[in-house]
Write a protein that binds this DNA or RNA. Structure first.
Length: 591
RNA sequence: GCCUCCAUAGCUCAGCUGGAUAGAGCAACGGUUUUCUAAACCGUGGGUCUCAGGUUCGAAUCCUGAUGGAGGUACCA
């Protein structure tokens, strides 16, 4: 049991004994004591005043005395208005170091027996990834790590959108204009090569539309009748019919894209346990349509199309199967949801997908519930905000995208430049430098994207480089490197007993209090599905350590104190490393 | 039209199960290096928490409405 819950329970007991009434536990509010007051834990006594029928001050005093008598870790208290500020003994805080914080599994919750499947990334194979995908990848990966630390058994899945008319557009453009270009003979990364033809298609298509309009067609007719779009649609039909030549081309071009994606994932240290391919799942779901018709969840319109009426839920009617019997997005997703459940029997299934699809997922989950799928209650859409540029939304076809590979490269280059300017790495080996620049550059990028709550939209200005100072990844990495340097110089080894002869300094205690909060931060991040909680905590911790580092000598302290401060430093380094690891960010030994 | 989400310092963001004087970083200005890594630390200035009501001992936080912004509302995905 944590000290906080002990205080809560004892306070509840105190209310029963002193005032002869009961107060539910959740109404006993504890918060961190604000810096300007003495104490570490504060009990808000306003809600209790109406039970005690005494002034807030008197109530606070009575509760404080009761708590101090019952709980040996309480060293003292003070009352200011409706706030009972409780001071905890130094030995409690120092005891946490060896007892908890320095243990290798600090922050790892025991298994909770629940399985969760997290689908994220889910790229299309017609173009390379951009900054929006990077945000998706990082959020998905971080959530997987956080939930894993919280005790879930996590499976990371990637559903690749590898078929459809958009893929055929790239294929067609390559056939028409490619002249046999391959990643090998052009030196282009596979996904970029395919993306290039996607853009070429679009340009040529637009040109045809203009020509048709000039010849008297309406915009709509032109879009529909342009030869290129007809050819692309023809290609899709051939693909669906298994035309060998088309399938071969599709396989070849997709293999280029996969090689490209793997490279990007590797650079981002993103990984998956399970891949689904839409080419294997796009026909699923039709049996669920039959099931829904039989259960009268769906209805058929005269033209044969199948719908669900959600007007009672405040939504619209939604198409689930086309009149010609072919699937729509919803059909596939229904089938894929069932497939995932058949594969894993998970308790929860998460989709990390942008907020532009909020409505789709609302409907998807609702339909599955209406179909009577009990597992549908475990479905969750982790909806995140779009990454916008100052000019607005990124659009692949208009070239207003921040390319993932370009950005990663730029970040690493910038990291190199900054580091060399500081001149600290002169004697590093070439390999060590290379690793370091990668760690710092990616640390800056990942932190930048993860420190913002997922649901909020994110503004990225390509003209303003991502910071390396202040509230950034490199700041935290630097703090780690600094600690590592001290520990190395001291040939640090953890002892079994951390003793602190004199009283703790304020900053030492602040640091210990922060360190003690790490597990509860993980819990909050896991419950909120919010990696930004971890990111902001790591920053607070690093900031607090830097202050400590400036205020107190470590290596020059006398033996007992020195060992304590080394333990404190080691604990901080360990928590920083773990926290950053949850975000997929590495920390360097020196920088 | 209807639905959903967002609005906090010049900029980027924390804080939101209601609690003390609303916090960081960047940018601006000033200071700290014979001392463990200055990617650091300390200080100054900067706020009608979009607006208007309501709930209450207490509202940035909850409720209602308005305004502004984003997204959705396709036999696209």
């Amino acid at each position: 049991m944590t000290l906080e819950s002990t205080i809560q329970l004892t306070a509840q007991q105190a209310i029963t004994n002193l005032y002869h009434t009961n107060l539910p536990l959740e109404q006993i509010v504890l918060q961190e004591t604000r810096k300007e007051f003495e104490g570490q834990i504060t009990l808000v006594t306003f809600p209790i005043v109406r039970l005690s029928k005494k002034s807030p001050e008197q109530t606070g005093l009575e509760l404080g005395e009761y708590l101090q008598k019952q709980i040996k870790e309480i060293a003292g208290f003070n009352v200011i208005k409706g706030f009972l500020n409780i001071s905890i003994t130094d030995s409690y805080w120092t005891g946490l170091l060896e007892g908890n914080i320095l243990k290798p599994d600090y922050g790892q919750f025991p298994p909770n027996g629940k399985k969760i499947l997290i689908e994220y990334s889910s790229p299309n194979t017609n173009k390379p990834m951009h900054l929006g995908h990077v945000r998706n990848n990082l959020i998905g990966y971080a959530i997987a790590e956080i939930l894993s630390a919280y005790g879930y058994q996590v499976t990371k899945a990637n559903l690749i959108n590898d078929r459809g008319v958009h893929i055929c557009k790239s294929m067609l453009a390559w056939q028409l204009f490619g002249n046999g270009e391959t990643p090998e003979n052009s030196g282009l990364k596979g996904d970029h090569l395919v993306g290039k033809y996607y853009v070429i298609f679009d340009q040529a298509y637009k040109k045809q539309i203009e020509e048709l309009k000039a010849a008297g067609s309406t915009e709509e007719e032109a879009k529909k009748n342009a030869p290129l779009i007809l050819q692309a649609q023809d290609l899709l039909i051939k693909w669906e019919n298994g035309d060998q030549a088309v399938i071969n081309l599709w396989k070849t071009m997709n293999s280029w894209v996969y090689a490209g994606f793997e490279e990007t994932y590797k650079k981002l240290s993103i990984s998956f346990d399970k891949y689904y391919y839409e080419s294997n799942t796009y026909l699923l779901g039709k049996d669920l349509i039959e099931e829904g018709l039989a259960k009268n969840v769906f209805f058929k319109k005269p033209d044969g199309s199948v719908w669900i009426d959600l007007t009672a839920e405040g939504l619209d009617e939604k198409l689930v199967l086309r009149a010609d019997g072919t699937s729509v997005y919803m059909t596939q997703d229904l089938g894929t949801a069932q497939l995932k459940y058949n594969d894993f029997q998970m308790d929860e299934s998460m989709y990390v997908v942008g907020n532009e699809q909020d409505y789709h997922f609302k409907v998807l989950f609702l339909i599955l519930k209406k179909l009577g799928k009990t597992w549908a209650n475990g479905l969750y859409h982790l909806s995140y905000g779009m990454v916008d540029l100052p000019s607005g939304k990124m659009k692949s076809r208009e070239g207003t995208v921040v390319d993932a590979d370009d950005l990663i490269h730029e970040m690493i280059t910038t990291a190199q430049k900054r580091t060399e300017e500081l001149g600290k790495t002169a004697e590093f080996s070439t390999q060590k430098k290379k690793d370091l620049y990668r760690i710092i550059g990616l640390g800056a990028l990942k932190y930048f994207l993860l420190k913002v709550e997922p649901k909020k939209r994110l503004l990225f200005d390509p003209n303003e480089s991502i910071d390396f100072q202040g509230h950034t990844g490199p700041f935290i990495q630097y703090t780690y490197a600094r600690i590592n340097s001290i520990l190395t110089k001291a040939s640090y080894a953890s002892t079994n007993k951390t003793k602190r002869s004199s009283t703790l300094t304020i900053i030492e205690r602040d640091l210990l209090v922060l360190l003690s909060q790490y597990p509860s931060i993980i819990e909050i991040a896991a419950k909120e599905y919010n990696p930004a909680q971890i990111a902001n905590y790591a920053f607070e911790l690093a900031k607090c350590y830097n202050k400590f580092y400036h205020e107190e000598p470590i290596l020059k302290a006398e033996d007992n104190l020195k060992q304590f401060r080394l333990d404190l430093s080691a604990a901080t380094a360990s928590v920083i490393k773990k926290g950053m690891h949850l975000l997929g960010i590495s920390v360097p030994d020196s920088m």
